[in-house]
């Protein structure tokens, strides 16, 4: 792949990460989100214990880890859907701990959910309109006088139709969201999140339950967010997807950030392998290692037979 063929956003993100140390908590040149000492306990279990992590602005950062690593819990802390027991984090330099979920969203940090939350008894276009911020008619008294919000509603609708077209949902405009397929709901949820012009889009397992035919289109949309100047942080299990679209990968295990690095190299990091397979695994790490173990075993056998 040639450097000049990369889209501008991707190139900029890669440049930012160039030569960065692949260490947990490494400082980034222009972080949009900085997290310090976030702890969340459920009884005796420490679900999240993140010392320090920074998310680079304008990049796509993946958050991976084995099941139960605390990724979704960490997501919930950051977006105000759950309260952290300790710690603080800043978004665009503003302190966000203890800020309620709706205020987090208003500040430009919008999330989606692992189990898609399309509002199924609302039509697709109503779902989209709901994503818009500061619609005046969302006040009860102003809502009673259509003249006060009609104009704004028309603008919102135009914007929504534009987004629906981009996400190829325009044919479904007036259908109930409940009639969409799983993948289309994911698309709708993402499109709806964009109605609020977020700066940081947080996607919780965007590929879960999506039919493979839609995966490519969804990937394209995520990449496009970066080109539009947004930052993306996503949780994902599908490693092919992580390798394909992310600029930087953060690995969590047992509530802690254990490694960070570029997608190509982070998966061979010893700590990551340990986390996924267990520290005392017997499986060979690479072809050379496998060969070496084989030689050792053969040598031992030879020794025994000569004795």
């Amino acid at each position: 792949m040639h450097a000049e063929s990369l889209p501008a956003g991707k190139a900029a993100a890669l440049k930012a990460f160039e030569g960065m140390a692949a260490e947990p908590g490494v400082p980034k040149p222009d972080p949009i989100l900085v997290v310090d000492n976030v702890v969340r306990r459920f009884g005796g279990l420490t679900a999240v214990n993140v010392n320090h992590v920074e998310i680079q602005r304008g990049s796509i950062t993946a958050l991976i880890g084995p099941n139960g690593a605390g990724k979704t819990t960490f997501f919930n802390q950051l977006t105000g859907f759950d309260t952290a027991d300790e710690g603080q984090w800043t978004f665009n330099g503003r302190n966000m701990n203890g800020v309620s979920a709706y205020k987090v969203a208003r500040q430009g940090m919008v999330r989606t959910f692992q189990l898609t939350k399309a509002l199924s008894k609302l039509t697709v276009i109503e779902n989209m309109r709901l994503g818009a911020q500061s619609q005046k008619g969302e006040n009860f008294f102003r809502g009673l006088i259509p003249g006060l919000w009609r104009g704004q509603e028309d603008e919102i609708t135009a914007k929504a139709e534009d987004l629906l077209q981009r996400f190829k949902l325009d044919a479904k405009r007036d259908d109930f969201a409940g009639s969409l397929s799983g993948g289309q709901r994911k698309l709708l949820e993402m499109a709806r999140a964009l109605m609020g012009d977020p700066q940081l889009v947080m996607l919780d397992e965007p590929m879960a339950g999506v039919n493979p035919a839609l995966t490519q289109s969804l990937l394209g949309h995520v990449k496009n967010l970066r080109e539009l100047g947004m930052s993306v942080l996503f949780v994902e299990h599908d490693m092919d997807m992580v390798r394909d679209i992310s600029d930087w990968v953060i690995v969590m295990a047992q509530g802690e950030v254990i490694a960070e690095g570029p997608p190509d190299s982070v998966m061979s990091d010893e700590r990551v392998v340990d986390a996924y397979l267990g520290a005392h695994h017997d499986a060979p790490l690479s072809a050379e290692e496998e060969e070496r173990q084989l030689h050792e075993a053969e040598a031992e056998l030879d020794k025994e037979s000569t004795e």
Partner: peptide
């Protein structure tokens, strides 16, 4: 339908 979804869209 789903209050968490609405919260995530910036509504009180």
């Amino acid at each position: 339908e789903d209050e968490d979804a609405v919260r995530s869209l910036g509504k009180n």
